[in-house]
Computed example of a mutant assay.
Amino acid sequence: MASGCQAKEPPTQVVYRFDDHRYLELKGWDCEGALWYTDTQRGIHSEAVSQFYRIFTKKYVHPSERYIAIPTWHSPGSIVSKDYGKTWHPSSFSPGENEPNGDNAPPYDDILSFTVVNDQGFLQTKHRLYMSSRPFDDPRLLPGGKGIHYELPDGVQGDIKAGTGGWAWGMVYMTKQGLKDTVQSLQTNWGDQPDKVPEVKGYTGWDHMQCDMDAGR
Rank of each mutant, 00 (worst) to 15 (best):
Thr175Gln: 00
Asp181Pro: 02
Pro194Glu: 13
Tyr173His: 12
Trp190His: 05
Lys196Asp: 15
Thr182Arg: 09
Trp190Leu: 06
Met174Trp: 05
Thr182Met: 04
Glu199Leu: 11
Gln187Pro: 06
Gly165Ile: 01
Lys196Leu: 11
Trp167Val: 11
Gln177Glu: 15
Val197Pro: 01
Val183Ile: 15
Asp195Arg: 12
Val183Ser: 04
Lys176Ser: 07
Met171Asn: 08
Gly165Phe: 05
Ser185Leu: 07
Gly178Glu: 09
Asp181Gln: 00
Asp192Ile: 13
Lys180Arg: 15
Thr188Trp: 13
Val197Cys: 02
Thr182Leu: 01
Thr175Arg: 00
Val197Lys: 11
Asn189Cys: 08
Val197Asn: 08
Trp190Met: 10
Gln177His: 14
Pro198Val: 11
Gln177Lys: 15
Gly178Cys: 03
Asp181Leu: 03
Gly166Phe: 03
Gln177Ile: 14
Met171Tyr: 09
Ala168Asn: 05
Gly166Leu: 01
Leu186Pro: 03
Thr182Asp: 03
Asp181Ile: 07
Lys176Met: 11
Thr175Gly: 00
Val200Arg: 02
Trp190Asp: 03
Leu179Gln: 08
Thr175Ile: 12
Gln193Met: 15
Lys180Asp: 07
Met174Tyr: 06
Met174His: 03
Thr188Arg: 13
Met171Cys: 03
Thr188Val: 11
Pro198Glu: 12
Trp167Tyr: 12
Lys176Glu: 12
Asp192Cys: 12
Val172Trp: 07
Thr182Gln: 03
Gln193Ala: 09
Val183Trp: 03
Asp195Ile: 07
Gln193Phe: 09
Met174Cys: 09
Thr188Gln: 12
Val197Leu: 09
Tyr173Ala: 14
Pro198Cys: 07
Met174Gln: 05
Gly170Trp: 10
Gln177Arg: 15
Met171His: 07
Gln193Thr: 12
Lys180Asn: 13
Gly191Lys: 15
Lys180Ser: 07
Thr175Ala: 00
Ser185Phe: 09
Glu199Asn: 11
Trp167Glu: 14
Gln193Gly: 04
Lys176Asn: 12
Gly170Arg: 03
Asp195Gly: 13
Gly166Val: 07
Ala168Pro: 00
Gly165Asn: 03
Lys176Ala: 04
Lys180Thr: 05
Gly166Ile: 08
Gly165Asp: 05
Gln177Gly: 08
Val197Gly: 06
Trp169Met: 02
Trp169Glu: 07
Asp181Val: 02
Val172Ile: 09
Leu186Arg: 09
Leu179Cys: 06
Pro194Trp: 06
Val183Gln: 06
Thr175Tyr: 00
Lys196Gly: 08
Val200Pro: 06
Thr188Asp: 13
Lys176Cys: 01
Val172Cys: 04
Glu199His: 10
Thr188Glu: 14
Gly170Cys: 11
Asp195Lys: 14
Lys176Tyr: 01
Thr182Asn: 05
Ser185Cys: 03
Asn189Phe: 05
Ala168Ile: 09
Gly191Ile: 08
Trp190Ala: 00
Gly191Leu: 15
Val197Ser: 05
Gln193Tyr: 07
Lys180Gln: 12
Lys180Ala: 15
Tyr173Leu: 14
Gly166Met: 08
Ser185Lys: 00
Gly178His: 02
Leu186Glu: 08
Thr175Ser: 10
Gln193Lys: 09
Met174Phe: 01
Gln193Arg: 10
Pro194Ile: 03
Val200Ser: 00
Pro194Met: 02
Gly166Asp: 01
Leu186His: 10
Lys176Val: 06
Gly191Cys: 14
Val172Asp: 06
Glu199Ile: 14
Val200Trp: 01
Val200Ala: 06
Gln184Glu: 15
